[in-house]
Write a protein that binds this DNA or RNA. Structure first.
Length: 474
RNA sequence: GUCCCCGUCGUCUAGGGGUCUAGGACAUCGGGUUUUCAUCCCGGUAACAGGGGUUCGAAUCCCCUCGGGGAUGCCA
């Protein structure tokens, strides 16, 4: 069994394509199949080397390891379509000679007109040049007349295939849009034409791709038949949509895998979310690490309808991984984000782990740490607006005064009992007691438990922060 | 326009003729733990697109309508 993921390098790795890559990978692992990467760079205008590199990087980051690809030729290469022109030319010649293909010399306007007419009459579109003798085609071509190569779609023929997800899908050749271009006027072959050639030559047995290719499939099958190439098994994945049910795009939120990486999503969580989108397990368990995904997944249990990408659920899932992993591993992952938040020099490892241990539950993604890390690492924390207005309340002023007195009376080794001492002296309790303390100590209204925070920041910082609050509010 | 695919809580889904007064998860709301916030635990609100059939019986089968998506000459 051989599967493939065939990105076109015209930008970053999109989350929807990543889903396709993930599903292919799960299947590959489940059935011990080869996983081929093929770069579909037939669009010379938009394809770039940079995006090829970044796409491959992102796939690797996600945890996808292919067994064949541009960097690993196992005898089925080249794996970039731009390097396979000589192969496609051969097939185009065959198509031309056998009469399955023909050169079309019509102008765009001409074709548009003819198509509109065919449409109006509700008849299948047949190209004007469709029956031009080969000799004349060659003569005109030799004269330098511009042409495209088209596939001659047979009349009234049933084309059907068993899709692993959609079931049996049937088309009539009269309804697929008529004779279609396989080679552009600039000589470059078109995707719809060469996918099927490459899949055959690379011996791909199962094509798992997005549903947007479903309507293209009959054309590809027709070409395979004309060229006497094998037709692979198909599975068309329903599309991923944005919250407005339109195809997922930038305006819905982040769509680039690279940005997820930067924001501090774990590849395991993304893999989990993407791999679970569109189906569910019998037991209802959703936190599935890759091996478990491989164990439980079947193409057959993917739903047929498109799925809305739920950013919140992804976050939740990411947070769940953050809570689940061992502390030292999580600490390691947070370090770059702490540095990015402006803290170049970190405390010693054991203290750092204490901090992470206190903070990890407040974070869903790694970059969330920037919102809380200052509680521990700053000398003092400027209160935000909301905290500021809390500290101006009378009961808060009371607490500030009490703290200010107390901090002068206790010794550094007594700070673990600081809160209980404040409590003894305080006329307030509950919210009116703890909120002010939190505000004084951390500059904000939420965060880890104060009993944990205070010992970690230590006496000096505690005192400094109390003095600051005192000078500012009393 | 034509063809193809699809339509269960806000979202992801379970369900494949009676066990569905439709189950789970995220989100949301309420309660409990934390003498504060978060975490955590418990509970609630919330859906079979509409209309016809078939059947003793339909979310489950068929048809139509509506709605969404995709394809229809030089994106993949």
């Amino acid at each position: 069994m051989r599967v493939r993921f065939a990105p076109s390098p015209t930008g970053y790795l999109h989350i929807g394509n990543a889903r396709t890559a993930v599903i292919n990978y799960i299947i590959a692992k489940k059935y011990n199949a080869e996983y081929i990467i093929r770069i579909e760079d037939t669009d010379k205008e938009r394809s770039t080397k940079e995006s090829e590199i970044s796409i491959l990087q992102d796939l690797k980051w996600l945890g996808i390891n292919w067994t064949e690809g541009p960097d690993m030729d196992k005898g089925h290469g080249p794996y970039r379509q731009s390097e396979r022109d000589h192969i496609y030319k051969e097939y185009t010649d065959r198509l031309l000679k056998s009469g399955h293909g023909f050169r079309c010399f019509c102008s765009r306007e001409q074709v548009e007109e003819d198509k509109a007419k065919a449409m109006a009459e509700n008849k299948p579109f047949h190209d004007r040049c469709r029956n031009m003798p080969l000799a004349e085609q060659e003569r005109l071509a030799a004269e330098g007349k511009e042409f495209t190569v088209k596939f001659k779609v047979p009349e009234n023929t049933e084309i059907s295939f068993d899709d692993k997800i959609k079931g049996t899908v049937t088309f009539n050749s009269d309804n697929i849009g008529g004779d279609f271009i396989i080679v552009r006027s600039d000589g470059g072959p078109v995707y719809n034409y060469i996918v099927i050639i490459d899949d055959a030559l690379m011996e791909v047995t199962h094509v798992i791709r997005g549903e947007d290719h479903l309507s293209n499939t009959p054309k590809q099958i027709l070409i395979a038949k004309a060229l006497d190439l094998p037709v692979p098994e198909y599975a068309h994945l329903p599309l991923i949509l944005g919250s407005d049910k339109k195809k997922l795009s930038k305006r819905h939120g982040i769509t680039s895998v690279d940005l997820y990486k930067q924001e501090g999503y774990l590849p395991e969580a993304l893999m989990n979310y993407l791999g679970l989108l569109g189906w569910s397990t019998e037991s209802g368990e959703e936190l599935l690490e890759f091996e478990r995904l491989v164990e439980l997944f079947e193409l057959e249990n993917i739903g047929k309808s498109p799925a809305v990408f739920d950013f919140q659920k992804l976050k939740w899932m990411n947070g769940a991984y953050l809570k689940k992993y061992p502390l030292d591993k999580v600490t390691e992952m947070f370090i770059p984000y702490i540095k990015a938040a402006g803290f170049e020099t970190l405390p010693e490892r054991s203290k750092l782990e204490d901090i992470i241990s206190a903070l990890r539950n407040s974070c869903e993604i790694l970059s969330d740490i920037s919102k809380f890390i200052g509680i521990f690492l700053n000398e003092i924390n400027e209160p935000d607006e909301e905290t500021d207005s809390h500290l101006k309340e009378d009961y808060a002023i009371d607490i500030i005064k009490i703290c200010n007195e107390l901090i002068e009376q206790i010794t550094p080794d007594e700070i673990s009992s600081f809160i209980s001492k404040v409590k003894e002296k305080s006329p307030h309790k509950g919210k009116k007691l703890f909120h002010p303390i939190r505000a004084i100590v951390t500059g904000r209204l939420s965060g880890p438990e104060l009993d944990i925070v205070i010992p970690i920041i230590g006496f000096d910082k505690l005192k400094k922060r109390i003095k600051y609050a005192y000078s500012r509010y009393c």
